[in-house]
């Protein structure tokens, strides 16, 4: 009985493996390549790849894609670029494109605004220190009461 059961088990497994379809195989392909599939599933994928031309073709295409990417990854950046980058940064000097300390960046406009406000304030203050103009031009009451018409002409005095 045991031997028969064992045979049945083997037969059952064989049926299960051959029934793996392309859709499932392609879905599991990435996990299989990353070695993340459990033993039985792994064998199923491997058997399917051996039997199915389409899926094995896709697998090969993925290998090629990986090789192309690896080839691009292996390229080294130009070692002289560092010097060019630093030269480019030097050229920024005076163009106003240099990075500024955030404190200085905020403080600068604040200081400019404050100094302008102070200049205006002191200007007004100095102007007020010299006294109001109206006080200087005030005519004394005695003079204001003089009737100009009643004053003798200067010419009369000259003729005397």
């Amino acid at each position: 009985m045991k031997i028969t059961a064992g045979k049945n088990q083997v037969l059952f497994l064989t049926i299960k493996i051959t029934k793996m379809n392309c859709q499932l195989c392609q879905k599991e392909l990435d996990a299989w390549r990353d070695g993340k599939l459990p033993g039985e599933r792994k064998i199923q994928v491997e058997l399917h790849l051996k039997e199915c031309e389409t899926c094995s073709g896709i697998y090969r295409l993925q290998l090629i894609a990986d090789k192309v990417i690896d080839r691009e990854k292996e390229l080294q950046a130009d070692p002289f670029r560092v010097t060019r980058i630093m030269a480019g940064i030097d050229n920024l000097e005076g163009s106003g494109n240099e990075p500024a300390n955030p404190f200085i960046k905020v403080l600068k406009p604040v200081l400019v605004t404050a100094s302008m406000a102070a200049a205006i304030f002191f200007g007004i203050l100095l102007g007020n220190l010299s006294g109001p103009v109206t006080d200087r031009n005030t005519i004394p009451v005695e003079l204001a009461l003089i009737d100009d018409a009643s004053i003798e002409s200067v010419n009369i005095l000259l003729n005397e």
């Binding site: 691009e72 990854k73 390229l75 950046a77 130009d78 670029r81 920024l92 240099e98 990075p99 955030p102």
Partner: peptide, 27 residues
């Protein structure tokens, strides 16, 4: 840059631009 552009010269040029841009935005 290579991953997006697939061209060494273009990737080198863009790398240079990126570092200059990073320097300007460092604050």
């Amino acid at each position: 840059c290579m991953g997006f552009l697939h061209n060494k010269d273009d990737a080198d040029d863009l790398t240079q631009d990126i570092f200059i841009q990073a320097y300007q935005s460092l604050s």
